[in-house]
Simulated scan of single mutants.
Amino acid sequence: MVTTVAFAAVYMLLWVRARADRQRLVVDPALGWSLAYVGALVGLAALTVWCVGEPGLACAVYVSVACVMVFPLRVSAPIAVGLVLGAIALSAVEGWGSQVGTAFAIMAASVAVFGLRAVMTRNIDLVNAQIENARLAVDNERTRFARDLHDILGHSLTVITVKAELAQKLLDVDVERARAEIADLERLSRDALADVRRAVEGYRDISLPGELVRARVALRAAEISAEIPNSTDEVPSELRELFAWTVREGVTNVIRHSRATHCEVRLAPDRAEVVDDGTAIPSPDGHGSGLAGLRERAADVGATVVTRQLEPGFSLSVVRR
């Protein structure tokens, strides 16, 4: 009686451990624990058979179940088959009846518990997949936010810097114009703050007409002549946001890097292009965090970013074919 109770208590540890492993999303228990556990269970089963005789063979069913739960199929399957054959062989023991029923119980219980473990494993895999998807969603949102923040602040701070330099030069030459530039600095700073707030709130609602106006103001402040369309009517609605980002990125790069004297923005139903006559040579592969963000946005609507070195100048365009 004592050995039977001890065997039952040790056997129940299996399900306590299985529940804990499931909560920790552990598929396979540690090998050391599994070997020690099955060893203890086999020892108690043998002791039970020695104490009570033939009825103790029922322990073989639980030993098989335990092996299926803690070992991989390639290990547990041979053990279950061995227990089935062993039970049949014990039918020859004098005074013991046929053990076919015990063999069938071992086989049926092993198959059933294998199915149960498969379901538990799939559930754990599903939970892990959901966790990974959530992590990727957070990473994607961080990437989006970093990209938007770069695009927004990169453009705004570039214009603010240019206007601050111009105001500094005008202080001793044209005080009234210097005051106007300083007033523009305040307005641009407020606009940048509003853009950052929109980015933090998850919005990216820039407008193409607004970017054309900003481009004209920024290029004039940088003393670069501008040729910018007054109408955006021919641009499809689904491309307006992308083309707005194209104008922002292109004009920002012209002001920052090109040393240009003239810049032209061209709009068409299927493309937006920013062309300058600068002498600065951009990076040969056209890479940068701003361009990388523009490429991601273009890919979302089936468009392509194209950069070309001109003689002289540089062209940045986004084209949907």
Rank of each mutant, 00 (worst) to 15 (best):
M1A: 13
A8P: 00
V10C: 05
Y11V: 01
L13K: 13
L13Y: 09
L13S: 08
L14K: 12
R17P: 06
D21R: 08
R22Q: 15
Q23V: 11
Q23C: 05
L25W: 04
G32V: 01
L35A: 14
L35H: 12
V38M: 12
G39E: 04
A40C: 11
L41C: 06
A45Y: 00
V49W: 03
W50I: 13
P55A: 01
G56D: 09
V65R: 08
F71I: 03
L73P: 05
L73C: 07
A80S: 15
V81S: 04
L83N: 02
V84C: 11
S91W: 12
E94H: 12
E94T: 05
T102G: 14
F104H: 03
A105K: 03
M107A: 15
A108C: 05
A108Y: 00
A112K: 06
L116V: 15
L116E: 14
V119T: 09
V119I: 13
M120E: 10
T121A: 07
D125I: 04
D125Y: 09
I131G: 04
R135H: 15
R135L: 15
A137K: 13
D139N: 11
T143G: 07
F145A: 02
A146V: 02
H150I: 03
I152C: 03
I152W: 03
I152T: 03
H155V: 07
L157M: 13
V162W: 06
L166E: 11
K169G: 02
K169H: 10
K169R: 14
V173W: 05
E176S: 08
R179D: 14
A180H: 11
E181M: 09
D184F: 12
L185T: 02
L185Y: 10
L185M: 11
E186F: 11
S189N: 11
S189M: 06
D191I: 14
A192P: 00
L193P: 01
A199Y: 09
S207H: 00
S207L: 04
P209A: 14
G210E: 01
R216I: 00
A218R: 07
A218C: 03
L219D: 00
L219R: 10
A221Q: 06
A221V: 01
A222G: 06
E223C: 11
A226H: 10
P229I: 07
N230F: 02
S231I: 03
P236C: 00
E241C: 06
L242D: 08
L242P: 12
A244C: 09
A244R: 13
N253M: 07
N253T: 12
I255R: 13
R256K: 15
H262D: 02
E264N: 12
V265C: 08
L267I: 08
A268P: 03
D270H: 04
D270V: 01
R271I: 01
E273L: 12
V274Y: 01
V275I: 15
G278Y: 08
I281T: 11
I281N: 11
P284G: 06
G286W: 09
H287I: 07
L291G: 07
A292H: 15
R295F: 07
D300K: 14
V301A: 00
A303C: 05
T307C: 10
R308W: 00
R308G: 02
L310N: 02
E311Y: 00
G313R: 04
G313A: 04
F314N: 06
S317V: 01
V319G: 03
